[in-house]
């Protein structure tokens, strides 16, 4: 972000931000415990909640890895934004696709009940009534496709 903050700094060394060893070991321990928890939870049937419990634990683990091992907690905020944006767009991808896949066939019932006549799709509807009024006495050559 601050490419021009200090032009005179060329050649100055990068000083790494070293985390204490214990932080890594604790994170590792937490990840192992959470793995045990998620495996353990899979032996209990929570019904539909199975998925959400598994996802919740996985997300806690993923967040731990990202924040500590990947240094997101200590890094530039912008890198966290990049990471977050990717998750948002992944969510959009999945959710919008499922708008379709989860709601297919909603019109099937209506179409079964009131099947449309392909030759005269508007027969018996308000639209047909209006059309007739508009065209008045004009004779329409059937409701079939216009002659080429």
């Amino acid at each position: 972000m601050d490419a021009h903050a200090n032009p005179a700094a060329h050649g100055k060394d990068h000083v790494p931000h070293v985390l204490p060893l214990s932080t890594y070991l604790k994170t590792w321990g937490a990840l192992l415990v959470l793995t045990a928890v998620t495996v353990g939870a899979s032996y209990v049937n929570f019904g539909a909640a199975n998925l959400w419990i598994a996802l919740l634990i996985a997300s806690v683990k993923a967040a731990t890895v990202a924040l500590v091992f990947m240094h997101l907690y200590y890094d530039h905020k912008f890198h966290a934004v990049i990471f977050g944006v990717s998750l948002v767009f992944l969510a959009i991808f999945i959710i919008f696709t499922m708008f379709d896949t989860q709601t297919r066939g909603r019109a099937d019932g209506i179409e079964r009940e009131r099947p449309a006549d392909i030759k005269a799709p508007f027969a018996g509807t308000q639209a047909e009534q209006k059309l007739k009024e508009q065209r008045g006495a004009l004779k329409i050559p059937g409701e079939s496709a216009p002659t080429p």
Partner: peptide, 18 residues
């Protein structure tokens, strides 16, 4: 632009809701 891709699929058999 990421929210509108389904308009390429109006006659594909995509659900009416989508």
């Amino acid at each position: 632009g990421f929210l509108v891709w389904g308009h390429h699929m109006f006659v594909s058999g995509q659900s009416e809701v989508a």
